[in-house]
Design a protein around this nucleic acid. Sequence first.
DNA 1: CGCACCTTTGAAAGCTTTCAATACGGGTGG
DNA 2: CCACCCGTATTGAAAGCTTTCAAAGGTGCG
Lengths: 254, 254
Amino acid sequence: MNRVATSVIMSPLATRLGRLYKVDQDELLELERLTHSHRLYERDSIIVERNQRQTQFILMIEGWAARCRYSPDGSRQIIHFLLPGDLATPDVFVIRYSDHDIVALSDVTVRLIDPEALTALIAGSNSLAPGLWWAAELEDAILREHIVRLGRRSARARIAHLLLELHRRLLNVDQATEEVFVMPLSQTIIADTLGLTNVYVSRSLSQLVKDGMIDVKGRIISIIDRARLAEECDFDIAHFHENSSFKESYMGNN
Amino acid sequence: MNRVATSVIMSPLATRLGRLYKVDQDELLELERLTHSHRLYERDSIIVERNQRQTQFILMIEGWAARCRYSPDGSRQIIHFLLPGDLATPDVFVIRYSDHDIVALSDVTVRLIDPEALTALIAGSNSLAPGLWWAAELEDAILREHIVRLGRRSARARIAHLLLELHRRLLNVDQATEEVFVMPLSQTIIADTLGLTNVYVSRSLSQLVKDGMIDVKGRIISIIDRARLAEECDFDIAHFHENSSFKESYMGNN
DNA sequence: CGCACCTTTGAAAGCTTTCAATACGGGTGG
DNA sequence: CCACCCGTATTGAAAGCTTTCAAAGGTGCG
């Protein structure tokens, strides 16, 4: 835990960009070698604060974080989970003040990159810009999916859908096997994500277990019957845009 | 209705970018003069279809449209409203196939711009790229706000919040007065947006009217008591990022 | 005038929350 | 090694918000 990855080992972001969006390996290495510093955050600490001036391009290396908003009554809505390889502040180039908090849900390691250094690197590359842009668009797609989940699905289906989504995202950064993954979230955090209460998350989750679709052992989730799970919540991986490539984009060499 | 704006009159997008993000007027004129074609869509027609290959940068000129997703049971979730001046396909540069539908909610006029022509224009400009990027980030902020709305607010508050948000967005493109705006949406469409039923939208909306917060006459909405409305739903315009400027961004000349 | 679409209203049912109490699990100290 | 503790998870019963089903009332337009 909290060990800082060395530069020779590909970061989770590079893994995703290379594997899923066919970004050139050598340009990914440039990204890895870019001057930067790592920073650790303990669980429950604030990585970015709402209304705070943003100055760094922040990249998730290890651990889980979340974008969230707090309401006056103290309730919290988790907007998006940030996993290893995700861009925490893709908007640092054009937005000065963050409109939400980013909090660490586990101990977290991030990389801080100077926006101007990144701009310079991108200028000398032809696959990095579309690659990073693709990663940012991927988050948008997940946000849209989250809206559908909140607006049109039952508690059971919301939970099933979230599990499948997180599993897929972890698979894409080599942090899950085909059937098992670690989800460091309390049921209260899941509730804050899905617009439910922790009590009802407990009830619904144990129903999924009883129905033989998943298995839960502490923070370890096993997908037992993916087909039934996916059918129940209308899960579709199309929105992960995994069959794209920068070479086929309008920013590629086509 | 459906009259095509001439190139000399600033499009709603240019209005927003100039006024809210301080993009240079002359560069905005370049954008207006860019080769392009207009296209009309009737109400209920499909502007972009899910899984369809995207090829054009589409700009909303007139009318309302929505990003939406249909579930197997036939229910629909509206993800985001597209108003005049909005970017319908900001992701055309890096995403090949759309993950959702864009449908016309009223008769709609759009501008179709060739992505490569836009790329060329942006390359010769220094405020257009951050401007368009800012507009895209603004949509992200609205999506995040929508998630909070769906996850953590009552039906009443969801409706109040949506009304205030749409009012603000229309104000920013000169399509509303301080108190009144036209919302060409049936209550069923509002329900599809807010994760409710049309019946309950009707009940909640008439409560807001009875409580003297708003007035509804057909499609014309009047904000009567903005303060109370905003307080009830915790509305905050910070996420519109209206006090930013490209000159203060990492892509500006700072 | 009549049809199509939209809104309103009532009553019953349903999903989820609330409140409150009990159980579990992992780490610490005796 | 066991007792204790704290955060987390589970369970029950009652209440509440929203949906469903159904029917009636409006509104605009050909």
